[in-house]
């Protein structure tokens, strides 16, 4: 059993990341060739680059990384290969938090309120999850807890939709829920990037604890791991990273589920070593999907969240089948 060298893996992922970032800046309904980059500043293409493509690309990178790292950290802590912010209902609760701010129309008063609502939802979600299932860490309880959170969150969102006082709010909520990188502004970038960075930073600090948790709760504690501190880092980290991502782009599912699986064999299955590669793979996945969505020859652009679900659904099904074979 040999995993490939870490340096090679990181180089390959970074290369893909840079290539796709360039692609993301260039590609779209309007092609922005390299020559435009060196043109005089009043070239109209510059507006596209500066106001549309750059924020869209940066957000794609940040959100992909946040979701990839969050998924890897949740899977590592729960020792459950089916865990991810989407499956466990964390994204849905973040969406509910954000929808509440849209519903009450308070987003106009401060651009920070929507992200704040999303993060409150996400952190609350992880906290409830750890309370419900933290002690047992059995696969079944976690998935059930996630199903409960998802149900509660979607019921809340449905309630907000049905009670929505004006069609404008309704439209905004629906659009936003589907998850997309379209028409994000630089202020979205400035708000979400620091929060995502902070969240991912907190998650990186759990790496050693996640490694030790391979030996179970007792094993990890006997190795001096502070599980309460790890849980706190995890709740805040996933809450900030996922919450800020959802606030910026809506719900983009399956990234956090898929990328740890793709990267795990390449890092020798070490949960701590999986965090960064999983994050990088998340950026690659989101950027690639976003470019494909942009280039689809449809009148209205397909939402990224929807496209990801279309890709992710069958993957999830396949994963379940493989796991069932292994467990049964």
């Amino acid at each position: 059993m040999r995993s490939i060298s870490a340096r090679f893996l990181y180089s390959a992922l970074l290369f893909a990341l840079v290539t796709l970032s360039c692609g993301s800046l260039i590609a779209g309904k309007v092609w922005v060739p390299w020559s435009a980059w060196f043109a005089v500043n009043d070239d109209p293409l510059w507006v596209i680059i500066l106001e549309l493509r750059i924020p869209r690309t940066i957000l794609g990178v940040a959100v992909g990384f946040a979701l990839g790292v969050s998924g890897a950290a949740l899977q590592g802590y729960t020792r459950n290969p089916l865990a991810d912010p989407g499956v466990l209902g964390v994204s849905a609760l973040a969406a509910l938090g954000a929808v509440m701010t849209l519903f009450f129309g308070v987003t106009i008063s401060s651009p920070w309120l929507l992200p704040l609502g999303a993060m409150t939802g996400a952190i609350g979600g992880v906290a409830v999850l750890l309370l419900l299932a933290g002690a047992t860490s059995s696969v079944l309880t976690f998935i059930l807890a996630g199903a409960i959170l998802n149900t509660v969150a979607s019921a809340g969102v449905a309630l907000a939709l049905s009670l929505s006082p004006n069609p404008w709010a309704l439209n905004e909520i629906v659009n936003w829920l589907m998850g997309s990188l379209v028409d994000r502004s630089n202020s979205d970038v400035f708000i979400s990037i620091p929060l995502i960075a902070l969240g991912c930073g907190l998650l990186m600090m759990t790496a050693r604890a996640l490694d030790a948790l391979t030996l179970g709760d007792m094993g990890a504690r006997s190795l001096g791991v502070n599980l309460a501190a790890t849980r706190l880092l995890l709740a805040l980290g996933v809450g900030l990273a996922t919450g800020a991502s959802v606030a910026a782009t809506g719900v983009i599912g399956f990234v956090g589920l898929v990328t740890p699986h793709l990267m795990r064999p390449l890092v020798g299955a070490r949960p701590g070593a999986l965090l960064i590669p999983s994050g990088l793979a998340g950026t690659v996945l989101v950027l690639a999907a976003d470019i494909i969505v942009r280039l689809m020859p449809s009148v209205v652009e397909i939402k990224l969240g929807v496209a990801m679900a279309v890709l992710g659904g069958p993957f999830f099904l396949g994963l379940l089948l493989v796991l069932r074979r292994r467990l049964g």
Partner: peptide, 10 residues
Amino acid sequence: PQIPEVAWAV
């Protein structure tokens, strides 16, 4: 520990 728990295929 009593239970020989190993979560991942390391």
